[in-house]
């Protein structure tokens, strides 16, 4: 299996009916961006085909970093189901305040268009199965299983 240093990679042999991926990054902001890309890339084959003509800002408060990622992915799915949006870019500020993790996010993308985007499969939910965000040395990593 090909090694990767930063970015995301889909895992072929985990939760085969669904989709699993690992993301790695030097900081939490990039990690969340890669996770956003992985969720989008599960639904749209080429993220580069997505234009950035709609912006959405949202805040999430969570008691741990795993929950922050779970709620973050849930929000991406919410925008897809309610507004038909998929995101190409995701900027974030994540900080720890007391016992809470606070995330401020700015997403940009456009409405799904079957004629323009090569669509793959719908992501219906984030799951807690194997969900883990951790820091090893200087690198952050996340393991995620999406419900399909």
């Amino acid at each position: 299996m090909r090694l990767f240093i930063m970015g995301y990679r889909f895992l072929e042999d985990v939760s085969i009916a669904d989709v699993a991926f690992i993301a790695k990054a030097a900081d939490l902001q990039s990690l969340f961006k890669y996770c956003s890309d992985a969720v989008t890339n599960t639904m749209v084959k080429n993220i580069k085909d997505i234009r950035q003509n709609v912006k959405k800002k949202f805040h999430i408060k969570a008691k741990d970093i795993d929950m922050l990622l779970f709620m973050f992915i849930e929000k991406i799915i919410y925008y897809k189901d309610v507004y038909g949006l998929v995101f190409k870019d995701m900027r974030s500020r994540i900080k720890k305040k007391g016992n809470l993790y606070l995330g401020e996010f700015e997403a940009s993308g456009e409405k799904l268009d079957g004629m323009k985007h090569d669509l793959l499969v719908d992501v219906k939910a984030a799951t807690f199965h194997m969900l883990e965000v951790k820091k090893s040395g200087k690198m952050w990593s996340a393991m995620v299983v999406l419900d399909i």
Binding site: F10, L11, E12, D13, V14, I16, A17, V19, V121, I148
Partner: peptide, 8 residues
Amino acid sequence: GRTMSRAK
């Protein structure tokens, strides 16, 4: 029941 992942 599936035998392989979607990616595979």
